[in-house]
C-alpha cells in the first residue's frame, strides 16, 4: 500500500502569546520565542497512521510538504519516524497562498508522485486552523474523502475509518484511492529512533518547483488564492481575575463558593 502524507511546518503550537508578534504589513505571525518550528501535530499523527498501515500491509510512505524557509531537520522528522521519501515543493509562485491555492499545489505534486492508494493529511494545521486542504485535495483529484479519522484499517481495495465524532460512533468504508484526514484521537505519534534519525540524514528530499509540477502559476500562491487576509490581530483577553485566598486552601475553596453565591452565580 502506497501512501502520501501531506505535512506542514508550523510555529510550535505551545508558543505562548508572548513568544510571537504580528507583522501587520505582511499580515503574518512571526515567532520571537526562539523555539524551533515543528511539524503540525495532526500531520505527525497522519504520519503515524501511515506507519501503522505500512506495518500491516507493506508499501511505501511518501511525505509531501509545501512551504517556504523549511528547516531540513524539522521536515525530515517523518523520515526518521519511518517514512520512505520526502518531497518538498516550493518556489516564489507559491508565496501568499491560501488553503485553496495551497491545495492546488499539493494536488499537482500528488499527481506527479503518481502511484498512491491513500492520501493522509492532518485534520487541520495548528497555525491556520482552517481544515480545508485535505478535503480540497480530494475535490481536486476527484477522490472521496473521510475526515477526522481515529483509526484506519485496510482490506484489499477498501479502507475502514472510525471517525472521531463527539457523542457518536461512526465507521465509514471508502474505496481506494481516497483522502483521509487524521484527528488527535488516533493517538500520539511515535518518537523517531536513533537509527531512524541516522537513516533520515542520509536521505535527500526531492524538490519540485511550479515548473516541475507543470502547474499554471495563476492557480497557486497569491494569484490562485480565493480569500484575502485583511487584518491579523490579538484577541482581547477577559477582565480582571479576583483571586480568592484563605488561611488554608480548604478555606479558600469555601470562600470561593460563598463568593459565587453572593454574586448569584450559583
Amino acid at each position: 500500500m502506497d501512501i502520501v502524507v501531506c505535512v506542514k511546518q508550523v510555529m510550535d503550537a505551545d508558543t505562548p502569546p508572548s513568544g510571537f508578534r504580528i507583522d501587520a504589513r505582511a499580515n503574518d505571525v512571526v515567532s520571537t520565542s526562539g523555539l524551533p518550528p515543528v511539524i503540525n501535530g495532526f500531520d505527525e499523527q497522519a504520519v503515524e497512521a501511515a506507519l501503522r498501515l505500512k506495518e500491516a500491509h507493506g508499501g511505501t510512505i511518501t511525505v509531501l510538504t509545501l512551504g517556504k524557509d523549511l528547516a531540513l531537520d524539522v521536515i525530515r522528522k517523518p523520515l526518521s519516524m519511518g517514512a520512505d521519501e520526502l518531497v518538498v515543493v516550493w518556489d516564489a509562485a507559491f508565496e501568499g497562498g491560501d488553503s485553496y491555492s495551497t491545495a492546488h499545489g499539493l494536488a499537482a505534486a500528488i499527481r506527479k508522485i503518481g502511484t498512491y492508494d491513500l492520501i493522509l493529511c492532518g485534520r487541520q494545521a495548528s497555525d491556520g486552523d482552517a481544515g480545508q486542504v485535505g478535503p480540497g485535495i480530494a475535490e481536486l483529484l476527484g477522490m472521496p474523502c473521510v475526515t477526522f479519522a481515529k483509526s484506519i484499517t485496510a482490506t484489499d481495495a477498501t479502507v475502514r475509518i472510525e471517525r472521531a465524532i463527539p457523542d457518536r460512533y461512526e465507521v465509514v468504508e471508502a474505496p481506494m484511492p481516497c483522502v483521509i484526514t487524521v484527528s488527535n484521537e488516533l493517538g500520539a505519534a511515535r518518537y523517531p529512533t536513533l537509527r531512524g534519525v541516522m537513516a533520515a540524514r542520509r536521505k535527500q528530499p526531492v524538490t519540485w518547483n511550479a515548473e516541475a509540477l507543470g502547474i499554471d502559476p495563476s492557480t497557486v500562491g497569491a494569484a490562485g488564492a480565493r480569500t484575502k487576509v485583511l487584518r491579523l490581530f490579538l484577541p482581547e483577553r477577559g477582565g480582571e481575575c479576583e483571586l480568592v485566598a484563605g488561611d488554608t486552601p480548604e478555606q479558600a475553596g469555601k470562600r470561593l463558593a460563598m463568593k459565587l453565591r453572593e454574586a448569584k452565580v450559583i
Partner: peptide
C-alpha cells in the same frame, strides 16, 4: 476567525468568487 489555536484572530474576505 480564530487561528493559531485561538491566539490570533484574522479578518478575511473573499473578494471575487
Amino acid at each position: 476567525r480564530a487561528c493559531y489555536g485561538g491566539n490570533v484572530r484574522a479578518t478575511v474576505v473573499c473578494p471575487d468568487a
